[in-house]
Design a protein around this nucleic acid. Structure first.
Length: 316
DNA sequence: TCCCAGGATCAAG
DNA sequence: CTTGATCATGGG
């Protein structure tokens, strides 16, 4: 937590390996298509994101030094124009990164607990250090999850960035750069679906995005209240939202609300689970999700993430 | 040109 | 509770 300077409003901090609970692979984690938020911008092996911490925007770049088993995380950050400089920002930032990168999740316990699972343990080799990301904004996580339906990771991220550019608040930083925050529901609620679609190439997903935004602005739907319910109740409540089915609801609960027993079942999960666990028997997505929850309990979300990356990586 | 992508929805069986 | 067609958009 060093390098604080009152004049430049740039600072850096180091997160030592001892602060992280087990191995970590930054690139694998950031690039694994999780829907908690739009994917961080990549520059080589460094990743950059913008977040509002303590009321003021901050841009930070994270780099991993070393490998997944012996490493440190170097973080460079810069604040916006009117930000009072203080040590609290660095504290906020470290806390923020701990949440969004799942730094306190006990991965070694996970690997040990399921070392006897012949299928899941297959994925541990190349994916060691892959962690579940958790969003800091429920609305952002919900919209990103809706965008991902029947879409590629690349395309839903492109659409999300276009939404930010056109409808998100612009923030300026001391180095002359700027960026955009994720749009507020109030802004999206005022749009017509065709207007949104024309600027973001959201396709047919533009309509549910606008509808859901309106329901939240009108207080017909309270994401905070839903996130506080039990997993089963929360999922049932989410299914009334347009554009939200079982998979999107699970994405929101896992990446947005941090419910680790949620296991979103997409085409990749459906493929790999029915092939490697169910001898190729075709099964409904609902049964696959139930299978994952019953088998992996509070680690179902993690099991799903590892199986997803393993399958998507061409290991099928 | 067809098939696919971290699916949802509706009608019909 | 399951299956099939349809829904935009861009990549392979």
């Amino acid at each position: 937590m060093a390098g604080l300077s009152a004049t430049t409003q740039e600072f850096s901090l180091t997160i030592p390996m001892e602060f992280v609970n087990g191995p970590f692979n930054l690139a694998e984690t950031v690039l694994s298509g999780q829907t908690s938020a739009p994917e961080w911008l990549r520059d080589g092996l460094s990743f950059t994101d913008i977040e509002v911490l303590g009321g003021s925007p901050i841009k930070y770049t994270v780099s991993q030094m070393g490998d997944t088993a012996d490493f440190s995380l170097e973080v460079r950050a810069i604040t916006g124009d009117h930000t009072p400089q203080s040590d609290e920002i660095a504290i906020h930032l470290r806390k923020h990164l701990t949440q969004v990168l799942g730094l306190k999740d006990d991965l070694n316990f996970f690997y040990q607990k399921f070392s006897g699972d012949k299928v899941l343990s297959l994925t541990f080799g190349n994916l060691k250090g892959l962690r579940l990301m958790r969003g800091t904004d429920l609305f952002e996580a919900l919209i990103c999850s809706i965008l991902s339906q029947n879409n590629s990771v690349r395309l839903w991220n492109r659409s999300a960035r276009l939404m930010m550019k056109h409808y998100g608040r612009i923030v300026d930083f001391m180095d002359g750069s700027h960026g955009f925050l994720f749009p507020q529901p109030e802004r999206l609620a005022k749009l017509t679906p065709r207007e949104l679609r024309s600027k973001t190439s959201l396709g047919y997903r533009a309509k549910p995005v606008v509808m859901v935004s309106r329901m939240i602005v009108n207080e017909e739907f309270d994401l905070g209240k839903v996130a506080a319910e039990s997993y089963e109740d929360a999922k049932e409540m989410l299914l009334v939202l347009p554009g939200v089915g079982p998979k999107v609801a699970d994405c929101f609960l896992l990446y947005g609300a941090g419910r680790l027993q949620a296991a979103p079942v997409d085409v990749w999960i459906h493929r790999i689970v029915s092939k490697l666990y169910l001898r190729g028997r075709k099964t409904s997505r609902m049964k696959i999700a139930l299978f994952l929850r019953e088998r992996f309990l509070d680690w179902a979300g993690y099991a799903q993430l590892y199986l997803f990356d393993y399958a998507r990586g061409g290991k099928l």
